[in-house]
Amino acid sequence: MYANRTAWTAAVLLLFILTVASVTVHGRNNRSFAPGRTTTTVDSPEKAYAVWQGQKVKGRILLLFDAYPHAGGLVSYNGPPRLSPSNLVEFGVLKNVIRKIYLIVPDLQWDSFLNQKGIIPLREVPGMGKGVYLYNLNGIPFMAVTPSSLPRLKEKVLVYVNNRLLTGEEAEQLLRGKGITSDIFITCQQGGHP
């Protein structure tokens, strides 16, 4: 007969609840949002990072209206990673500004996107018609999704729009339609070719 098994069962249950609570609170405390709403246009991708930094945001979801970003991982840098026009998203991940990415892929380009070199789908995103998790070296949840399959997100998101892909107004319209709100909405006028 195990001694004090009821008391130990309760203690183990409590330990588990406390563990879940502590990691939940720790995660929530490390998510920072901008105090108001900022909509801005930048002329170069890396300037978007200065906007995020200025608003002291971290641990955030990024809605990315752009081409598949640079994602070579730490090994692709000679020394500590430095911000450049081509690595805004990865730099944001490495600095823990971004914790999750929705890469918006136009519906018409979906099939060709999946066949692109370097795109490694891990699995379909449950509940999304056209949405897949993509492999990346950092392991962050990185989803490619079409506008029509983009889910309604409860959490405020960071938005980055490459103007060569679509205009800020078009992106705003999509988000309104999905009931998604954003605290920092950045349009880049000279983003690279999508």
């Binding site: 879940v20 939940t24 995660g27 914790r99």
Partner: peptide, 23 residues
């Protein structure tokens, strides 16, 4: 629950990037 708790706790620093248990 004890192994789950240890497993979760080992990710404590990962949760510090803003994640939640569902993620």
């Amino acid at each position: 629950l004890i192994p789950f708790s240890v497993y979760l706790a080992s990710y404590y620093l990962w949760f510090g990037r803003g994640y939640n248990p569902g993620e």
